[in-house]
Design a protein around this nucleic acid. Structure first.
Length: 419
RNA sequence: GGAGAGGUGGCCGAGUGGUUGAAGGCGCACGCUUGGAAAGCGUGUAAAGGGGAAACUCUUUCAUGGGUUCGAAUCCCAUUCUCUCCGCCA
């Protein structure tokens, strides 16, 4: 969310910057509501001051007058509150402003490749897709998931279940020991307010799984990413600067409705309603956001380097970035069956956008209270890493060689083959 | 699920109707002291919103929302969260 004062000051800048995101926001309405809101506040404050003076005098002859003022205040207050509500609604639906480094563009086609790494494997045979491989091994079972649950779910079994678990453990170890993140095992449900804090609500409610916990109206949602719950650790807090940066990592299931992607990636486990992801979150001073973004992205690519998987780094264009992001790098891994790169990690700086929503602040050395910067990045999406290993490490006979670095996590197993 | 206790500033904690935005402590900042540090001493230190170029000033805020009152952190009601005991349970 943006600071209204800033918008007021740099009205044209905001208007222009948000045009880059190819969404339309009624800025004239915003301006109008803001102005009305302030007028009502001024009226109200004047009356409140009068009332206060009367009560200080303790003069009984003035008490009736004070009562009159009270009822007048109430009238104005009702109007002001309703205007404020509309204003907040409008404001909370405005996305973050793209950083000036971000390339201009409409959609994913305008994203820019920045670098490539790793060696793309060559096969003497036609490489199979991960779901062909997994089903043949009898270790990925989509039909079973359809029976017990429905589409876009999967049973991961046997050695692939072990691989999935190994991947989580391996990634967590690297991020904790080498990259300095604190490991968290968080709740998988988030309150409505928490979902608002990171920007999933109110605009993207359609993508969330809501869970009915009780009959009250305390809404709860399954987290679509651990970013939600990890970032909100600093919600409503004023952190001492000496505790910064805060870096958290968690491996959690993520739940998404994928409402807007009917017919997309329907085969295999590329796009599921539920998947594991190792997520990194950093909380930093606002001016350190971009440095931290580079660092975080390197933490993500570091995992791919260790797994010896080929990938490329992409910077998202203004039109393809997420709601809360000011700048985003996607890391895409090579999938031999598709002969192209697919997203396996996304690292974003959200500047103070989420912090303003969450009221997450810190005190600097001048004793000023400032909003924090928040960042999040996958390190990595476990499900898709599993896919990448299946496809890139497949052998002619359908067996899968296990990357060396993972073997200690898998009882020194070297190869997954049909039983 | 039953019974009780409680939610006050960055943190801890006092405060039961009238300059209380709120004692005291911790923390933090600055200064003095010191060869340097620690200790000690002194000063300062809430947030949000409005007005103002600024200095500054006004309003609101003691979990949240209502109510009583000229006036509420303080009294009443509802909601919510936390803690303790009992019950049930992985």
């Amino acid at each position: 969310m943006h600071n209204l004062k800033e918008i007021r000051k740099n009205f044209e800048f905001f208007k222009k910057a948000l045009e880059k995101r190819s969404i339309d926001i009624d800025f004239d309405k915003l301006k109008d509501l803001d102005q009305k809101n302030r007028e009502f506040i001024q009226k109200k404050e004047l009356l409140e001051q009068k009332k206060k003076e009367i009560s200080k005098t303790k003069d009984k002859s003035l008490f009736a007058k004070s009562k009159e003022i009270s009822s007048e205040i109430e009238k104005i207050d009702t109007q002001q509150k309703s205007i404020k509500l509309d204003l907040d609604k409008l404001l909370s639906n405005i996305p973050n402003i793209p950083h000036k480094d971000v390339p201009l563009g409409k959609n994913e086609n305008d994203n820019m490749e920045l670098s490539k790494a790793g060696k793309i494997p060559e096969f003497s045979f036609n490489p199979k897709s991960h779901y062909e491989l997994g089903e043949k091994l009898n270790m990925l079972d989509f039909d079973l998931a359809t029976k017990t649950t429905g589409s876009r779910f999967v049973f991961v079994k046997d050695k692939l279940a072990l691989l999935e678990r190994a991947l989580s453990n391996f990634m967590l170890d690297i991020h904790v020991v080498k990259n300095g993140y604190e490991e968290i095992s968080p709740p998988l449900l988030a309150s409505e307010n928490t979902m608002f804090g990171t920007g999933q609500l109110p605009k993207f409610e359609n993508d969330q799984f809501e869970v009915k916990l009780d009959e009250n109206n305390n809404r709860k949602f399954l987290i679509p990413t651990a970013e939600v719950i990890l970032t909100n650790i600093v919600k409503d807090k004023i952190v001492d600067q000496k505790h910064l940066p805060l870096r958290y990592v968690a491996s959690t299931p993520c739940f998404r409705k994928e409402a807007g992607s009917y017919g997309k990636d329907t085969k295999g486990m590329i796009r599921q309603h539920q998947f594991y992801k190792v997520e990194m979150v950093s909380i930093v001073e606002q001016e350190k956001c971009l440095d931290e973004l580079e660092r975080m992205t390197n933490c993500a690519t570091g995992i791919l380097d260790l797994l010896e998987l080929p990938y490329r780094k992409v910077i998202l264009c203004s039109g393809d970035m997420g709601f809360s992001a000011e700048k985003t790098y996607d890391i895409e891994v090579w999938l031999p069956s598709e002969k192209r790169y697919r997203e396996i990690s996304s690292c974003s700086s959200c500047s103070t956008f989420q912090a303003i929503r969450m009221k997450a602040r810190y005190k600097n050395q001048k004793n000023e209270t400032l909003f924090l910067g928040t960042l999040n990045g996958s390190g990595l999406a476990v499900g898709r890493t599993l896919i990448a290993i299946l496809e890139n490490y497949q052998q002619k006979d359908g067996s899968i060689t296990i990357p060396k670095i993972l073997r200690p996590y898998m009882n020194n197993l070297e190869k997954i083959s049909i039983n």
